[in-house]
């Protein structure tokens, strides 16, 4: 996993609440057995005027010019600014994969759906919570300023505006540590193999039925 330390990048809007995972990446693209290549279908139904198909070349598809990601001023955006409850709906990790593959590194919202929030960290993507008031302020500033950029400093847990105004954000220590160092969760957990085995041994005695094999 690639580490996340500090990102300064263009901010793009997704100005609605309850953006669901079907909206982030529609189901027809879930048929892929790969982890990559979802970026061109991020927000597919909003971004294009036709219906997207898996494995399709998207370069000739008709674009919805009203959709921010299709507008010149938001090209190359690395930070997505959005409203409450972003990522609600399914557990599909294709949602963070699509955001990541498109080039986003950080999503700022007043709140996130739990599973989506979790999935982001597994992919080096930072879901960042700021209050509704601050998010509103950032929306205003972004709309007023073409090429509006923010700096996200994970080490110091701050979002910094071009004027130098800094907003603190919260994040779990463990998640921060993994993100800063690009650590693979599985490797870390396997370092605790003895603890897992000890748990199993004890549990097998008190609740043996939990260890019955699934058989054909």
């Amino acid at each position: 996993m690639k580490p996340f330390t500090q990102v300064t990048g263009v901010v793009a809007p997704m100005d609605r609440a309850n953006v669901d995972t079907d909206m982030i990446i529609p189901k027809q693209f879930l048929k892929s057995i790969k982890r990559t290549g979802f970026g061109k279908n991020l927000f597919d139904e909003l971004r294009y005027l036709d219906v997207g198909q898996p494995d399709q070349d998207c370069s000739g598809r008709p674009l919805n010019e009203d959709f921010p990601l299709n507008q010149a001023r938001y090209q190359g955006a690395e930070i997505l600014l959005t409203r409450k409850n972003f990522g609600c709906g399914s557990s599909r990790e294709h949602a963070p994969w699509a955001l990541d593959d498109y080039g986003f590194r950080c999503i700022i919202a007043p709140s996130f759906a739990d599973i989506f929030y979790n999935n982001c960290f597994k992919n080096g993507l930072l879901p960042l919570v700021l209050s509704e008031e601050i998010v509103e302020q950032l929306f205003q500033q972004m709309y007023q300023t073409e090429g509006y950029q923010l700096t996200v400093d994970l080490q110091n847990q701050q979002v910094i505006t071009p004027e130098g105004q800094a907003f603190d954000f919260e994040i779990d220590e463990f998640r921060k540590h993994c993100l800063l160092n690009g650590l693979d969760d599985i490797g870390l957990t396997l370092e605790q193999a003895d603890a897992i085995k000890a748990y199993e041994a004890k549990r097998r005695e008190t609740a043996p039925w939990l260890f019955d094999a699934v058989k054909n």
Partner: peptide, 8 residues
């Protein structure tokens, strides 16, 4: 019981 992502 709960849902998890693919990495999980």
């Amino acid at each position: 019981a709960h849902g998890i992502g693919t990495s999980e």
